[in-house]
C-alpha cells in the first residue's frame, strides 16, 4: 500500500532563527498528511518548531556520476578562498 503514496522529504527547524534541516523522508497521500506524519515521526522528542514537506520528485538533484566535472575543478583554485589578505589585528576574528 505504501508504494502508492508519494515520497516526501522532510525539513525541520529545531529552534527559531536556525535553518530548516533535512531530517529524513516518509510516505503520505498529500501535503497535509505529510506534515502530520512528519509531526508524528520526526518531532516526537521535541525536535522542532517548524516543518517543511517537499514531494521528493520536485527536488532536482545532481548526479553522482557528474562529480568529476562538477566539483574537481574547484580543488585546484585555492585563490577562491580569501586567505591572501592581511587582516588588521583590530578587525579581530573573522
Amino acid at each position: 500500500m505504501s508504494s502508492e503514496w508519494p515520497l516526501w522529504e522532510i525539513f525541520i527547524r529545531g529552534q527559531h532563527g536556525l535553518n530548516h534541516r533535512h531530517v529524513g523522508s516518509l510516505h503520505a497521500p498529500d501535503a497535509e498528511m505529510a506534515i502530520k506524519n512528519a509531526r508524528d515521526v520526526y518531532t516526537r522528542r521535541n525536535e522542532g518548531v517548524s516543518i517543511w514537506a517537499v514531494e521528493a520528485r520536485h527536488i532536482a538533484a545532481s548526479s553522482p556520476s557528474d562529480k568529476g566535472p562538477l566539483y574537481e575543478p574547484s580543488e585546484s583554485k585555492v585563490y577562491r578562498h580569501p586567505t591572501f589578505f592581511d587582516i588588521p589585528d583590530e578587525a579581530g576574528h573573522m
Binding site: M1, S2, W5, L26, H27, A28, K36, N37, D40, V41, R44
Partner: peptide, 12 residues
C-alpha cells in the same frame, strides 16, 4: 498498522 507512519502516529 498498515504503514510505518500510521503505526507511529497511533502509538503517539
Amino acid at each position: 498498522a498498515p504503514v510505518l507512519e500510521e503505526d507511529i502516529a497511533l502509538a503517539n
